[in-house]
Structures are given as structure tokens and as C-alpha cells.
Nucleic acid binder design. Structure first.
Lengths: 114, 114
DNA sequence: TTATTATATATAAATATTCAAATATAAGGA
DNA sequence: TCCTTATATTTGAATATTTATATATAATAA
């Protein structure tokens, strides 16, 4: 696979690699939201939210619709949710593995104690 | 969704957000590879590859098996390929959209010229 | 033991990202 | 026109990431 392609793909993943941006995308699951609404669910200040939205726009992950002075953001390609769901699955598998490991470590120390 | 969860998920995406690391994961599609083999396909120097592998290990994306002085890396959860495939799909959709836009712009300028 | 091979880690400089403060823009109302 | 509301952009400081160089470690061979 081409190095340039990996460069572009890395940019794409970078766009997802921030908690605030993930929270924004998560909020957009239920449909379009204004910047104000997004900000309310985010505990970050106005310019920070706007900057993260700019980043998501730059990677074509979201689109804007303006109505008066209000900007409504929505997801460009719903496949992004598919991606986030697969990520969640991987994530959960990891948690399960870790729990199994912890359980095993606990049992080993119990055996040694006995 | 919890802020802490988004923090963890962002870490996960950060692990993917580098061209060299994507190239490594791509190489591991066909099975385990030694550090040397990975390096050969990567055009980066030894310590750089090793550092990227450390990052992938830290995020539990890969696992190591040592045999003598050689370290063989492999994918921890094949679901990662599912993720990369969905990413590819989104990526291709974006390219299609852009091409359509370009085509449209070309047609418009042709109409104006006529 | 010394040398070699394969890999890992520490360090530091270069670069990129994030955030908040200040400022800009644009629409609508008084 | 001036004010307000909603959003965007610029800037600079703080922080994080990346890379190469140098060094460390561990297995094996000579």
C-alpha cells in the first residue's frame, strides 16, 4: 500500500483522535445540532467547539447548514457510525481481556497465599 | 456518553493516527512479521519502527512473541481490520463525492463558456 | 569472554496540536 | 444606525508527538 494513501488515512484518524470531537460526532447520531446545542453537551468554550468543528469539516466528516445566524451541523456519511461501532467493539474486547487478566492475577496470588 | 470513555477512545484513534503505524497494521494483515521485516517495508529507521511498535503495544493493538533475539509482531484483535475496511469505505465515498464535485464544476464552466 | 545480531529505550530537538483570549463576521432586531 | 446573538478565525502559549542519535539489553556465535 502506498505511503501517500497512509498519509491521508492517518489524517482521517487524527480527526477522530480527540475526545471532544468524538463527543460531537456522538451527539450528531440523533440528527443535526446547532453549535450552541453541541457546546451545551460538551463543557468547552465557544471558540474551542468551533475549532473542533472546523477540524471535522476539514476532514469532511460533517457538513453545515446555516439558518440566520445559526449553524446546524450534521454527519456527512453515516458510515462514520459504523466505524465508531466497530471501534467500540474492539474497545470492549480489550476491556474483557484486561478483566480476565486481572481475575487470573488475583487467583494466582490467592494460590500463593494458600 | 461519558467524557472519560471518549478520552480512552481518542487514545485508541491516536494510536491509528500515523502513516507508519497504519502501514505496520496493513503489513500484519497477512500474519505475524518480525521487526526487521516490518522495517524493510517501511523506509524508516530501526528505532523509529520500534517506537511505533511500542505505541501499538501500549494501545494493545498488537502482541509480540519472541524467538531468540527476534520479535514477531501480530494483530491482537482481527476486528481492527474490520475497522480499517470501514475507514477505507468512508474514504472512498469522500473521493467519489469530490470527483462528482469536480465534474460538476467543469460542466458549469463549460456552460458559461458556451 | 568478546563480538554480533535484533530489538528496545532514553534523550533532545523539531514539529504539530490544543486551548483560551481577543477579534471578526454576519444576521436580525430596536 | 447601533446592539445583540451565534459562530468563525487569528494568535500565542502550553502541551504532546515525532524523529534521529546514542545507548542499553538480551540471545547467540566464535
Amino acid at each position: 500500500m502506498n505511503q501517500l494513501i497512509h498519509q491521508f488515512k492517518a489524517e482521517f484518524f487524527k480527526a477522530l483522535a480527540h475526545p471532544a470531537r468524538l463527543a460531537i460526532l456522538e451527539q450528531l447520531r440523533t440528527g443535526e445540532k446547532s453549535v450552541g446545542e453541541l457546546q451545551a453537551g460538551l463543557n468547552a468554550d465557544q471558540s474551542t467547539v468551533s475549532q473542533h468543528l472546523a477540524r471535522l469539516r476539514a476532514s469532511d466528516l460533517v457538513q453545515v447548514r446555516k439558518e440566520g445566524t445559526t449553524a446546524y451541523y450534521s454527519i456527512r456519511d453515516p458510515a462514520i457510525f459504523e466505524l465508531m461501532d466497530v471501534a467500540k467493539k474492539i474497545f470492549n474486547n480489550q476491556l474483557v481481556d484486561r478483566q480476565a487478566l486481572l481475575r487470573q492475577l488475583r487467583n494466582e496470588s490467592r494460590s500463593r497465599a494458600a
